[in-house]
Write a protein that binds this DNA or RNA. Structure first.
Lengths: 203, 203
DNA sequence: GTCTATATCGTGATAGAC
DNA sequence: GTCTATCACGATATAGAC
């Protein structure tokens, strides 16, 4: 009764990702994943040794996705102002399509002494970025003020991530339905870059 | 062997708050709370009927604290620009002192049809705010551009909440120790208001 | 590779003595 | 009000047949 090859492994991982993202580590039960994947409970422990191992592989992938997007965008070779607009536009789209990712990533407090981050090689990813160089150059030319790139990046990320994570509260407070919330996020694509540039251009 | 009056109830609640904030609902075990409170496991079920009820009372309190701060700040009768600076300053301090609050609040996805929010009466809390009136007035006078107050508030909150929630990642990426991170947040108290005002003043 | 059955443990909650 | 002892259940994980 062999399933087609071993795409059971893939189905398990996809199902696990859905459930873990929605309910977190402790909130997720192995039986839920089995059911969502349409496989037997024992199969999960056959392909992945344990719940923790299954979770870790999914966490690592999702973290890479979450931060990889940023790394890629800040290193593109577009002019500074265009780049700011592009980062916001792309990352906003990513978040709207993957609204559970930030909460999932940020919920896990990794206190393994930074071992996890080391493997992903993210230290200094901003220090060595094209984005940082561009900020320095434009400052040199007198076009913008001197600024810490990490501050700029975290303003962009925070401004986009927060409403996604707090969608329920934001929608309720603002009286927005789903359509209204999407429009709210679309409007942000314009506001955030304008705000960043307005700040930078004050000398 | 009566403890002094029934301050056991208070000790339980304080301990529960600490543990729930750090580990979330599912991640928290009743036995942990009992140990942290220095009371017997049975005592918790004596004072609070169940884990869920204990959690709910703490969640409600913490949510009020989280959003109550904002409501109060946006309704103060200080001039617009001063107010923006004050909101950022106060909320930043609050978050630095209570770094676990946002993750705790945002982790719970309340899908009780908005019943929870209704009780707290937060709908339209921005729509009816002094802050909104001030934005409208200054726009009228031609001092600032026309803007959605909800967009402004969520930029402020997001810019402050995100680095707090992502402290580990931000610190690692930026190569910051604890002292460096605190300085990073202090620097933000200046950057965020300047950014908001720079944006608003573009007509 | 896939299933059933089960071992083992941890959890929330309570009964009942004091 | 406070404790000990325990119940009832559900969780992860595995053994072992097919």
């Amino acid at each position: 009764m062999a399933e087609e090859k071993q795409d059971a492994e893939i189905k398990i991982k996809e199902a696990a990702r859905r459930v873990f993202l929605a309910q977190g580590y402790e909130g997720t039960k192995m039986r839920q994943i089995a059911e969502a994947a349409g496989v037997n409970l024992a199969m999960i422990n056959y392909y992945f040794r344990s719940k923790e191992q299954l979770f870790n592989s999914i966490y690592a992938e999702t973290f890479s996705q979450f931060i990889g997007q940023v790394v890629q965008l800040i290193n593109e070779s577009t002019p500074l102002e265009v780049k700011v607009w592009k980062i916001v536009d792309r990352y906003c789209d990513f978040l709207v399509e993957n609204p559970l990712v930030p909460g999932f990533i940020l919920s896990k407090q990794r206190v393994d002494g930074g071992e996890f981050f080391k493997k992903l090689d993210v230290r200094g990813v901003i220090e060595n970025s094209v984005f940082k160089k561009q900020l320095a150059e434009e400052t040199e030319k007198g076009n913008i003020r001197s600024t810490d790139p990490l501050q700029v990046i975290t303003v962009i990320l925070g401004s986009l991530v927060f409403p996604i994570m707090a969608q329920q509260v934001v929608s309720y407070v603002g009286g927005l339905d789903n359509k209204g919330f999407r429009e709210f996020m679309e409007e942000r694509k314009q506001i955030i870059p304008e705000m960043i540039m307005a700040y930078l251009k004050v000398k």
